[in-house]
Design a protein around this nucleic acid. Structure first.
Ligand code: FES
Ligand code: FES
Lengths: 143, 143
DNA sequence: ATAATAAAGGATGTTTTTGTCCTTTATAGG
DNA sequence: CCTATAAAGGACAAAAACATCCTTTATTAT
């Protein structure tokens, strides 16, 4: 479904959102330990998200990644789009050159419905929403 | 969503089902021309599907791939499972080691709903179902 | 029998994705 | 200013996915 990069990216940003809500920044080592992801690879992903202004970062002692005030209602779809693009939401399920109503593939209608419900789910879910259950220990970012 | 191999595999088997309904076998060259897929790569995929008894084949002149009588109600999910496995239907959307109710990831419930509706769609759609619209020229397997 | 045909199988090559390592740059604190 | 810290960036490595090529085997028609 999502690429590994995207999976790590989402898990990392959820964790960052949680730490951020507590007024803390999260270091890459810490993040990767908590979400069970490869450190250097995840660092690259967060660098990209940072360049795209999805998340913020500061270097140096007590530095790390965080969500700035305006980014508190970043939605999952923003993270997915930033990492995997929107092929998943606009592309044909059977991989024909383009998904269109006028020249649809055999599963176009059924697939589109599922693709749209995935998109809507990602659009309505913000990182901050997910931190609540995480902090209550009801959901997990690894194992 | 699906791998390239799976996309080609589904498109190829739909085309095979259609030719099969007309009592014909389809050769690999023909298939790949009609669905716009790489010939040698697709040949491998169909060889696998053939070994797994999803489709049938005969060698030699007038040979080719076809659906045998018992395989006429092969569902899309059979093709997907044979090629991509069932990670898509059982795995965690955020890539944690396993998807479980007792240790769910933050999007488990929402994701599971979508994953299930995809699975159900693939379970209720047979290759033969899809050939009707194809033969009417309402849907397409390339471009 | 023989030749032509078409799938099966094995080997190999390319590209993309995933993952690691090392150096550079920015920042904070003494 | 100097040092320690932590992200940024570039280069490289490994694995998986995607794709091609060539030889072998089975089948059909002559
Ligand atoms: S054309 Fe295939 S999903 Fe729209
Ligand atoms: S645990 Fe993530 S989808 Fe079930």
């Amino acid at each position: 479904m999502f690429s590994k990069a995207c999976e790590y990216g989402i898990r990392a940003t959820i964790y960052i959102a949680s730490r951020s809500r507590q007024g803390e920044r999260a270091g890459i080592k810490d993040i990767c330990k908590e979400i069970g992801a490869p450190e250097h690879f995840t660092a690259k992903i967060l660098q990209n998200l940072s360049r795209m202004k999805i998340i913020s970062s500061v270097k140096g002692p007590n530095g790390g990644f965080y969500l700035d005030e305006g980014a508190k209602n970043i939605k999952l779809i923003d993270v997915v789009r930033a990492i995997d693009g929107d092929k998943l939401f606009t592309g044909c399920g059977l991989g024909i050159k383009e998904c269109s109503e006028t020249k649809p593939c055999p599963i176009h209608n059924e697939f589109k419905a599922i693709r749209n419900s995935l998109q809507q789910m990602l659009e309505r879910t913000s990182l901050t929403d997910l931190t609540k259950d995480l902090e209550k220990g009801l959901v997990f970012l690894k194992r």
